[in-house]
């Protein structure tokens, strides 16, 4: 008993028949063999499965694949087409922003989405009220706050913040470091 759905994953067109209960995460991993997003909880509590859906960072374990007909999905792997590392990937490597790496694809997608949000001027709870609008300045506190949906049990947070700062500095204000 399947349902047809059309998805664009990391730039590739896919037509799938999925169970109505199949999440985007399971569709990616079990149906398409895209092992980039990880399953840490299956309940939207850890961020390991974070992908970009039509440019927004979302937990793919909380999305039903059937509801996403026509969506464009980018995984961390898709952010590095043909192994060409993005500024973010490069910064994560240079700052040793991971240990086991299990949370990393989610961290990268989350960071890519977050840089875009900050560039678009979307405030977080730590953004000063007096902020005049325009791109939010990415202080360490802003990065920590905005990256707190992605758990890292290995405890690489200090280095993750450094990596996101490095990537943001590479293309200031554009939110394009993930590309």
């Amino acid at each position: 008993m399947g349902h047809p759905v059309h998805l664009v994953i990391d730039g590739q067109q896919h037509d799938l028949i999925v169970d109505a209960r199949t999440t985007l995460l399971d569709a990616l991993r079990d149906h398409l063999g895209n092992m980039s997003p990880k399953k840490g909880c299956d309940h939207g509590q850890c961020g390991a499965c974070t992908v970009l859906v039509d440019g927004r960072r979302l937990n793919s374990c909380l999305l039903l694949a059937v509801s996403l007909d026509g969506a464009e999905v980018l995984t961390s792997e898709g952010l590095a087409p043909d192994g060409e590392l993005s500024d973010l990937h490069q910064a994560f490597l240079e700052q040793d922003a991971f240990q086991c790496g299990y949370c990393t694809p989610g961290q990268i997608c989350s960071a890519a989405g977050m840089l875009r949000e900050a560039a678009d001027g979307r405030p977080s709870v730590v953004t000063e009220d007096t902020d005049p609008g325009g791109p939010v300045e990415l202080t360490e506190d802003e990065i920590r706050e905005r990256m707190s949906g992605n758990l890292c049990r290995c405890g690489a947070y200090v280095n993750i913040v450094a990596a996101v700062q490095q990537a943001a500095a590479a293309q200031p204000g554009t939110g394009e470091a993930g590309r």
Binding site: H43, I143, R144, E145, S148, G149, N150, C152, R153, G155
Partner: peptide, 12 residues
């Protein structure tokens, strides 16, 4: 992981 809390980025 919603109820058993581990440190998140903002805690460190």
């Amino acid at each position: 992981l919603a109820e058993y809390h581990v440190p998140v980025n903002a805690d460190i």
